[in-house]
């Protein structure tokens, strides 16, 4: 099957994608909740900015990240001062690129599932004595959870497939930033790399398929008004 080197590439991809989603999940949920439930000035602008990575060429997103996280950049400089480390050419940088690219997909799915929660159930909970916090934890969150998980799975699949922003931002460093798509790209450049391209592409398709099926079955539960717990 796969060589140890190829397994390492798959493992790195899962690590990058997994980290990206775990870190992004609460941010995406907060943004989704804000967009679904709160009226505030600049909402249209925030909505647009969140969705920007979906439509801007990924290479532009990668370049913007590079500017931000460069040693003298607005985010890179404080990181260097606080931790003495940079995310450039590191797997953490690849995770950041994956997170930014996955964010719009996650926010979209989560926003839909929050909007699908019946507000009348929240009113009922309030008449039963529940304050805003309890209503959120016992009604809103559990009822939107299938959609939230569907969004996370979709974002994970998107993270695994991230190419343009990653290679622009943190380059193609084996063992650090060389995730599945970047390894496939490298193998394509090498004479005799065909077999590796076939194997890695197969794995990439398999992972995406599993994620899509999982995400769709969770989304189906939202539409039928079911729940995961």
């Amino acid at each position: 099957m796969l060589t140890p080197e190829e397994w390492a590439i798959v493992g790195l991809s899962l690590k990058v994608g997994g980290t990206a989603i775990v870190v992004t999940l609460p941010i995406a949920f907060a943004l989704a909740w804000l967009l679904a439930r709160v009226r505030f000035p600049g909402k249209v602008l925030l909505d647009a900015v969140v969705h920007l990575p979906l439509v801007v060429p990924p290479v532009v997103t990668g370049w913007a990240l590079l500017l931000a996280f460069a040693p003298a950049g607005p985010l890179g400089a404080p990181l260097l001062r606080l931790f003495g480390a940079s995310v450039l050419f590191r797997w953490t940088g690849a995770a950041i690129a994956a997170a930014v690219m996955a964010l719009p997909l996650m926010v979209r799915a989560m926003r839909l599932s929050i909007e699908a929660v019946d507000r009348r159930l929240e009113s009922a909970a309030r008449t039963l004595g529940a304050g805003p916090g309890r209503v959120f934890w016992t009604i809103t969150l559990p009822l939107s959870l299938p959609g939230v998980l569907a969004g996370a799975v979709l974002g994970f699949a998107r993270s695994i497939g991230e190419f343009g922003a990653t290679i622009t931002f943190v380059s193609n460093v084996p063992g650090q930033t060389q995730t599945l798509p970047l390894a496939i790209y490298s193998a394509l450049q090498q004479p005799g790399g065909d077999a590796m391209v076939w194997r890695l592409s197969g794995i990439a398709i398999l992972l995406s398929l599993v994620a899509l099926i999982l995400s769709e079955s969770l989304a189906r539960r939202v539409r039928r008004g079911l729940h995961v717990l």
Partner: peptide
């Protein structure tokens, strides 16, 4: 007084049971 502090036992026109 906020809803949750009014102690209203409200039976709505539709039952509004929590499905989960």
């Amino acid at each position: 007084v906020p809803t949750q502090a009014r102690r209203a036992g409200y039976v709505f026109q539709e039952p509004r049971l929590f499905p989960h």
